[in-house]
Design a protein around this nucleic acid. Structure first.
Lengths: 224, 224
DNA sequence: ATGGTTGCCTTACGCCGTAAGGACGCGGCC
DNA sequence: GGCCGCGTCCTTACGGCGTAAGGCAACCAT
C-alpha cells in the first residue's frame, strides 16, 4: 500500500476518501485507513486529535472543497439567478455522485462544517441578489439542499449546549456567512406566520410539496 | 425493564423501535434491545434468524405499517389526484417525524422492503389514475419520495446477484405491485430518450431541479 | 419414561474505537 | 561529544459490538 512519504493530516484524509469511494463508508475505520497508509491505527491519532469524529469531519471538508473548486470553474452565469442556482446544484450533485457516501455521512454528523455553511451562504446570496425574499430563499434552500444532499439539515440548530462556544461561533460565522446571518435576522424579526421555531420544518415541507405537485400537475396538463 | 410475557418477534421489534425513538439508531444493538426486554443478546436470534439485518428490516416494516395505517384512516380524496398524493406525502411525513431515524436507516439498507414498495405502488397508481404518464409519474416518484424519505432509493435496482431469487421476487412483485411493474414495462419499451439505464438518475435530478426552480421563480414573481 | 424440540443462556472470537505508555530518531544546547 | 526533549510511530490492553457454537432446562408427543 502507499507507504511512501511522511504521514500528514491531508494524506490521512485522502486515504479516508479513497477508502470510502472504494469500499463504502463502513470500511472507513481507524485500522482500515491506517492499513491503507502502511501504518498502525494509533498513529493516526497524532494527526487527528479529535479522534474518529475529526476523520469524518475531514471527509466532509474534502468533499466540500471539491464542490467549491467546481463552483469556481463555472462560467459566469451573468445576472440570471435561476441559471446560477441551477448550475450550483448540478456542480454539487456531480461531486456527490462521485462520493455517494456523502449524504449518509452528512446525515450522521451532529454539526455542519464551515465549508458546507459557505456553500449554503453563497447559494442564498445568489437568490437574494436575484430578488428572492429571505423567506422564499429560506424555503428554497430547504427544497434544493434536501434534493442535492439527500436530506435537509437544520442549518441553524440551536445546537444545545456549549453556550459560550456557540456565541463565539455565531460571531465568527456572521463575518463569513453574511447572507445566512441576514436571513436568520430577517426571519426572526418577522413574526408573519405562527411557526413553532424560527424554522418550521412542517411549513417548509408543505411548501416544497406544493411546488413539486404544482409542477407535476402542470407537466401533466402540458402532455407529459 | 419490561420483562413480562414471552418473547416474540413483534415484542423484539417493538423494543427496537422504542429504543431507536428514545436513544437513536446507534443505540439499537442486539445487546441493547435484549436488555430492554430483560433478556440476553443471543436470545433474540431465535426470533430473528436473519440476525441484525432482520432486526433493522423489521424496524422498517413496523414504520411502513404505521404509514399504511395512517393512509387507511384518510378521508376519501375523491378524484383529485393532487390532493390524494399530497395527503399521502403528509401522512408519510407524520410518521417519519415520529421516527426520525427512518431516513438514515432506509439509506443504509441494501434492499427496499415489500411494505415500502407497496407505498410507492399505491402512490404511483393514484398518479396514473389522475392522468399522469408513466414517465411523468416515474419522475414524480423520485421527486416526492426523495423529499419524504430524505433520499431517493433506486426502486428497481438490478440488485446484482442471486439471479434465481430475483426472478421469483419479480414474479411475486408483479402481483402485488401492479403499477410499479407496469411502469417498468412501459419505460423499458419506450426508448424515447437516451438514458443510460432505464432509470437515469441524472435526468430525474434535473427534472426535479427544474420543477423546484420554476416554482421558486414563479413565487418570486408573484411577490414572496 | 424417554427422546426430541423449544426457549433462553454461556462462552468465546474477531472486529471496532481508543486510553496509556513505550521505542526510536533527530534536532538543539551545554 | 554527550545529553535531552520532542515528534513520530508502535505495542498493549480494555470494553463494546455482532455472532458462531454449544449447553441446559422445560415441555410435549410417543
Amino acid at each position: 500500500m502507499g507507504s511512501d512519504g511522511p504521514l500528514s493530516r491531508d494524506r490521512v484524509l485522502g486515504a479516508g476518501v479513497a477508502l470510502a469511494d472504494a469500499d463504502g463508508l463502513a470500511a472507513v475505520t481507524m485500522r482500515g485507513v491506517a492499513t491503507r497508509l502502511g501504518v498502525e491505527a494509533m498513529s493516526l491519532y497524532h494527526y487527528l486529535p479529535g479522534k474518529k469524529d475529526e476523520l469524518l469531519d475531514g471527509l466532509v471538508d474534502v468533499v466540500a472543497a471539491q464542490i467549491h473548486a467546481g463552483l469556481a470553474e463555472r462560467e459566469d452565469p451573468g445576472d440570471d439567478w435561476v441559471a446560477d442556482v441551477r448550475s450550483r446544484c448540478l456542480v454539487a450533485r456531480d461531486v456527490v455522485v462521485r462520493h455517494p457516501w456523502l449524504p449518509r455521512l452528512l446525515g450522521s454528523r451532529p454539526n455542519l462544517r464551515p465549508g458546507v455553511y459557505q456553500l449554503y451562504d453563497e447559494a442564498l446570496g445568489a437568490m437574494v441578489r436575484g430578488g428572492c425574499s429571505y423567506r422564499l430563499a429560506h424555503r428554497a434552500m430547504h427544497a434544493l439542499g434536501g434534493m442535492v444532499l439527500g436530506f435537509t439539515p437544520e442549518v441553524f440548530d440551536p445546537q444545545a449546549g456549549d453556550d459560550d462556544v456557540a456565541e463565539e461561533e455565531l460571531a465568527a460565522m456572521a463575518e463569513s456567512l453574511p447572507h445566512l446571518t441576514a436571513m436568520v435576522a430577517a426571519e426572526l424579526h418577522d413574526p408573519a406566520d405562527p411557526t413553532l421555531g424560527w424554522c418550521d420544518s412542517q411549513t417548509e415541507f408543505e411548501f416544497t410539496l406544493g411546488l413539486l405537485l404544482d409542477g407535476i400537475e402542470r407537466a401533466r396538463r402540458d402532455g407529459v
